[in-house]
Design a protein around this nucleic acid. Structure first.
Lengths: 187, 187
DNA sequence: GAGTATCTGTACAGATCTGTACAGTAATTC
DNA sequence: GAATTACTGTACAGATCTGTACAGATACTC
């Protein structure tokens, strides 16, 4: 059996490299160079580059969902507050030096066919988050939770693009304000 | 002198191919195959693939801005209505069979370095549209035009991603509703 | 410490990609 | 209709990319 630590190392470092450098633009030789792990070992752990990308996206999905939930739980003062704290967490993310848009927006930009595995993984990630938002909205006992969850999705995606392209200052804060105003109209 | 029509043909058809297939994933040989124009002629008109992409993005910027302005002018019942009709135009765009996200979101996904030419072209395109929205907001005599223009940008980008990944039904209509509610709170 | 599993390094096959060379063809110009 | 200009087609150099082969080194196991 291969030791799990090597596979983990390849996965984690590849995640960074693909996030930073893109999918098509990143060759396996670059991963070899930046990880210091031989190409033979990489191909012993992952059938091919596609399998590595699939694993990277799966891991990213877990990492991001987990991180977001933890930050929201930490930042929120109450159950009602959680849905708004999503945007405080986003602001933290945008302010990280390594922030460079959302990995799944980038994946679905490079792999656009509807039947492409990576495109579908991207959709699944976004729908999973939408479902999480739906739960938070219900937790806050807001009316019309499906609609509000869609609102949160729209604001989140808009904020990510706005942050990535520096289209405005503090996009997440602005999105949070927008959400609060929209919710106050519902009541 | 080369006839302008060939250069035009290369440019227009390349635009479609890059939009559909991505930048890294599209080789010059594919452009040769799909245009029926020889590689020699392509390289006679464009110094290299980079120059072709730059020209494609420039053209896309012109096409999209022009198309949006025309659709808004056609759809709007009044000057005050124009800013909201941006989202009616977006809905039309999303419903086109060939719709596949925004070319500049995709360009900035594939070319992420801040000093990359294509990344910068993408930012410029988005800022140009933001300026157009600012003018429409002022035309509608809304308070705090800078803020509302940012709101429009955020909703537009969020709607594009939501449409591309099919995260909800009618994202543009939802965004339009959101904008109207937010504006009604300002007054 | 012998044997086994894991990893490295290099080398390379085969595909693909950018960009160029060049001979020949079609169209324009004078 | 001769000369120039624009375009095609093929071929290819050189770089790069995926994936494999294989010999040797290193670490783990009993």
């Amino acid at each position: 059996m291969l030791r799990p630590s090597k596979k983990e190392e390849i996965l984690q470092k590849s995640l960074d490299i693909f996030y930073r450098n893109g999918f098509h633009a990143t060759g396996v030789d670059l991963i070899v160079k930046e990880t210091g792990i031989s190409k033979t070992t990489i191909y012993a752990n992952f059938k091919n580059k596609e399998a590595l990308i699939a694993a990277v996206l799966e891991r990213r999905d877990e990492n991001f969902s987990c991180w977001l939930e933890q930050r929201v739980n930490h930042l929120a003062q109450s159950e009602q507050d959680k849905i708004y704290c999503v945007f405080d967490a986003l602001e933290e993310w945008f302010n990280e030096p390594a922030f460079s848009s959302c990995m799944f927006i980038k994946a679905s930009s490079e792999f656009q066919e509807r039947d492409n595995t990576f495109y579908m993984q991207s959709v699944q990630h976004k729908l999973k988050l939408k479902d999480y938002f739906l739960n938070l909205v219900k937790l806050a006992q807001l009316p019309n939770p499906e609609l509000v969850a869609n609102t949160v999705v729209m604001l989140k995606e808009g904020a990510i693009i706005s942050a990535h392209l520096s289209l405005m200052p503090h996009p997440a804060a602005h999105a949070k304000t927008m959400l609060k105003e929209l919710v106050s109209n519902l009541k």
